[in-house]
Design a protein around this nucleic acid. Structure first.
Lengths: 137, 137
DNA sequence: TGATAAATCGTAATGATTCTTATTTACAAA
DNA sequence: TTTGTAAATAAGAATCATTACGATTTATCA
């Protein structure tokens, strides 16, 4: 997903494409990894000094709901990133810069019938550490 | 880990064993799964109407730091449970009651050298859903 | 261009958690 | 058993992320 596709997605579903919405997408297009709502706020405040963080949170939530962004949670903060390709996979997440790497292994393929009587809704597999670039600092 | 072992652990490290600390342990000994800080607060307020939630948070944090409790995070809230056996494993977590089930599969055994140049600090694998008991309601 | 529903602003409210200061208590040593 | 002292606690203020709300502005389309 890139900015262009996201804008099409917004329009298709009848949402308005405001400058602020476009700028949020622009931010994520360049981010290449997970970012906090605070990061987005900081970026947006440069361009729109009067922006309300309600606008940021509302749009992050919207983008997540309609599948433009994906979200996770770390240290009590929500993190967002552009949705990547549709095939199921997990992520390595750099604790320093938020950059991610795809992991194609899914542990659900290996659990067999260990949870036979359980109703499974969801799962989370993430690896945390330092990406090659951040190890050098 | 049970209450008795936890108290020994506290004493060994020179921490005082107050009634409130014991009651928190008592709560987790019976809990058999993840509980929020709010759950602990609610329980403690029954027994100690004057208790400060600072006391609860401080002790949860301490217990986690010295390995009596383990922690995770869900929907913007921290969850705690008694530390279980020392062999590495992951959990199924019931979204309704917090009860957990051990999963012996660890995805790290399957990633090969996919992250060869990455420094790995940590990983998280959790499955969410409903336990057999909670499916019936 | 103008009507209208959606989006935004500004700010207050919330919910979880942490911090601060004064007071109390568990424990060790006499 | 008493007492000194560091640790633990109470009470409430402060913080941090997030959500809610009424008033105002704006994108879109007829």
């Amino acid at each position: 997903m890139d900015k262009r596709q996201a804008i099409i997605c917004l329009q298709k579903k009848g949402y308005k494409t405001t400058d602020k919405r476009k700028d949020i997408l622009h931010f994520f297009e360049r981010a290449n990894g997970y970012r906090t709502a605070r990061d987005v706020n900081a970026y947006m405040e440069q361009r729109h000094p009067e922006i309300s963080f309600d606008t940021v949170y509302r749009n992050l939530h919207l983008y997540h709901a309609i599948g433009i962004l994906e979200a996770t949670e770390l240290n009590g903060e929500k993190l967002f990133r552009m949705k990547c390709s549709d095939d199921h996979h997990h992520h390595f997440i750099c604790k320093d810069c938020g950059k991610t790497a795809e992991i194609d292994v899914c542990p659900m393929d290996h659990i067999g019938n260990a949870l036979a009587n359980y109703y499974i809704e969801d799962h989370k597999f993430e690896i945390y550490g330092l990406c090659p670039a951040c190890q050098r600092t």
